[in-house]
Structure formats: C-alpha cells, structure tokens
C-alpha cells in the first residue's frame, strides 16, 4: 500500500477548474499514493486576508486547520494558496500561541503540487506524453514566497514530445493579484496584456502554470484578445499520455 496524501484542491479548482483537481489526483495515484479528499474543505482565506479583513481570514484559516488536522501530507495545485498556509497563517495568529503551534505543524505538511512530486515523492518523470510547444508562467507566490523555479521545469523536461520555450521575462506578474484584478481592473488588464505579449513572443501553443488563478487571468486575456493559445495547469500536462 502506498502512502496517503490529502488533496486541498482550493475553492477555485473546486468551483471553476475541477479537471485540474482530477488530473492531480490521477498523477498522484499513478505514483502509488492513496489519495483522499477531506470534504469539509473550502478555502484558505486568502481573499479576505489580501483584502485587509484579517478577522474574517482568521475564521477561514481556523476552518482549514481543523479540516486538515488529521492529514499527514496535503497537496495543493496552487503556489499562492500553499503560501497562504505556509507563509501567512502565522501572521494571523501571532497573539494565539496554541493556534500558532498548530499553524507551524501545518506548515510542514502542506506542499505545492510540483515540489511535492520532485522533493517529497522524488520523481521527475511521471510517464507523461504531450506533443506540444509550451511556455511556463511563474506564479509570483510560487516563485518568490516558496522559491519554486526549477521543479516544474524539471517535470516538464521529462514529458515526452514536449518542448519548453521560456518567456522573456517569465517572472513578471500576470496582474491577477486576487481582488486586485477587480478593484483595479483596468490596471490588471494592462498587466495581463503585457504578459500575453511575452507568451505570444515564444510561439508556444500552450501556457503552463502551477496556479489556476494566474491561468484564469491569462486565459481570460488571451480569449478576449482572440488569441488561440491555451492554458493548462501543470497537473493536466503531467496527466496527459
């Protein structure tokens, strides 16, 4: 029997992009993991936290801590939601030492999907095949808060038939930023258009990322511009064969 992992699919994947969650489960099971989905899960609380509603974020964070208390390892198809738990929960509970202890225990158990594969499962070749030219978008929180840069590229390098072309620059924000995308819509849209210029410049057919939220922003802008470049989550690429 393989080891157990719990999925935290994030509210966005649950409600908008369920195939990403299914693909992630598929890849993990193929690697021999027993995958469960704690049904009480909802959101990490980031929308409230980033909007300055710390009390509301704390309520949602507590729910997360309770939901995943019994899990041994939790895998998340988002750098941003992972970073919320591993880097920001602690700032919400500075005045609650008991909860803070739970947070620190949780920080060690929560893993972003790509780095879970490379660093925990220790695999780079998951046996995927996808005949396509792709480019990779670094989500800001994955890149700068979690320091994830090489893991997804190593995984993509082992996908048969796949060619990776780097954007210049690849590390610039797509302009999503949570509620920023709607509070400063015009600015966010302008940032997205700069991003898609970089994407189109690579000549790739597909943009891959670790974050569904970036992909929603990028696909939304590509679609609005009438460009036929598609977006895929890394999990969907790795589940292809």
């Amino acid at each position: 029997m393989g080891k157990r992992v719990s999925l935290f699919v994030t509210c966005m994947v649950d409600q908008l992009f369920p195939k990403v969650g299914m693909a992630m489960a598929d890849v993990l099971e193929r690697l021999g993991y027993r995958v469960d989905f704690p049904e009480e899960q909802t959101c990490c609380g980031q929308p409230a936290y980033n909007s300055g509603y710390h009390a509301e974020a704390r309520i949602v964070a507590r729910h997360f801590l309770k939901t995943f208390e019994a899990s041994e390892a939790i895998v998340v198809p988002s750098g941003s939601c992972t970073a919320m738990v591993t880097h920001h929960f602690k700032d919400l509970f500075t005045k609650e030492p008991e909860t803070l202890a739970l947070v620190h225990a949780m920080e060690k158990k929560v893993h972003e999907f790509a780095t879970f594969l490379t660093d925990v499962a220790g695999v780079e070749d998951v046996g995927a095949r996808m005949d396509d030219v792709v480019t990779f978008h670094d989500g800001c929180h994955a890149l700068r808060e979690l320091g994830i840069q090489s893991a997804p590229r190593r995984l993509l390098a082992r996908v048969k038939g796949l060619e990776l072309r780097e954007m210049v620059p690849s590390e610039e924000c797509c302009g999503f930023g949570g509620t920023f995308a709607v509070k400063f819509a015009e600015l966010s849209g302008a940032m997205a258009r700069t991003k898609i210029d970089a994407i189109v410049g690579t000549g790739a057919n597909t943009v891959v990322s670790l974050d569904p939220s970036c992909l929603m922003q990028i696909q939304g802008a590509l679609s609005r511009a009438g460009l036929h470049v598609r977006t895929m989550h890394l999990a969907e690429v790795l589940a292809s064969r």
Binding site: R144, C173, G177, A181, F184, L187
Partner: peptide, 10 residues
C-alpha cells in the same frame, strides 16, 4: 494605495 498591488513580491 495599499491595495494597488498584485502582491507579486518583486
């Protein structure tokens, strides 16, 4: 002003 940021961290 503090909201005019995507919190990209650059």
């Amino acid at each position: 002003l503090p909201f005019a940021s995507s919190l990209c961290g650059a």
